[in-house]
Nucleic acid binder design. Structure first.
Lengths: 116, 116
DNA sequence: TCGTTACATTACTAGATAACGATATCACCA
DNA sequence: TGGTGATATCGTTATCTAGTAATGTAACGA
């Protein structure tokens, strides 16, 4: 487990960090990010895979683009989006781990009947 | 650098993960988390250190409490808050790193005059 | 018991934003 | 040039939420 620096952040840095978290705070945007795990895709493909509406998918994609999480390449009448910040997956893994740990702890608080 | 699993998440998991990110998407809440880096503190202490209003600080603290990021201990008329999910700092470190990398990349795009 | 201190909760307002239909833009082709 | 498909943007509405003042609650001391 990599150790954190625990360095205090300046006010401006806190703003930037919170903005990054905000970009990832919508289920639809996380769905798009995960849909792009296996390579770049067009908007239509993402619309099909996520079941979203075109205008909405397009807007969320531009939010992720502005946040520096995705990249875009235009070819013909299509736009191909791809992940450019791979640290996204480490972030999600960390969060999944801590959510898992918390649920296990809550189970233990109930008296841990199944174990022992 | 620890490698991510890149495992696809279910719909319910995506909801949970996005909720965790949402809890961290406010500068004020990050300020509170960082103020608690050096140990547990009372609400009044946090009000003093962050410059916030009591009601607002109290509300943000309860959001972080519900998210499982903070813990609370009551003693006398005071409430002592503390960090119970240390992975928070790794999250922030990751985000800081990727923000830094992105800024460096933007500098390079400008032609990298200083580093011939 | 009365007052005080510390904290939580409620009620309200202003601002942000997600979702969606409609429209605009742009590339391509006949 | 006109038509079509792909994407982006606009306008609107509904929902959410941060902030704040006022009030509620609980513990402690005189």
């Amino acid at each position: 487990m990599s150790e954190s620096t625990k360095r205090k952040l300046s006010g401006a840095a806190l703003e930037k960090v919170s903005e990054r978290f905000k970009a990832l705070s919508e289920p639809m945007r996380l769905r798009l990010v995960y849909a792009l795990m296996d390579g770049e895709k067009t908007v239509s493909e993402l619309v099909r895979e996520t079941g979203g509406v075109q205008a909405n998918v397009s807007k969320h994609l531009s939010v992720l683009l502005d946040a520096g999480i995705l990249g875009r390449r235009k070819q013909g009448t299509s736009s191909y989006y791809r992940i450019v910040d791979e640290s996204i997956f480490e972030l999600c893994d960390l969060v999944c781990g801590s959510i898992h740990d918390r649920l296990v702890a809550q189970l233990d608080e109930l008296g841990a009947p199944p174990r022992s």
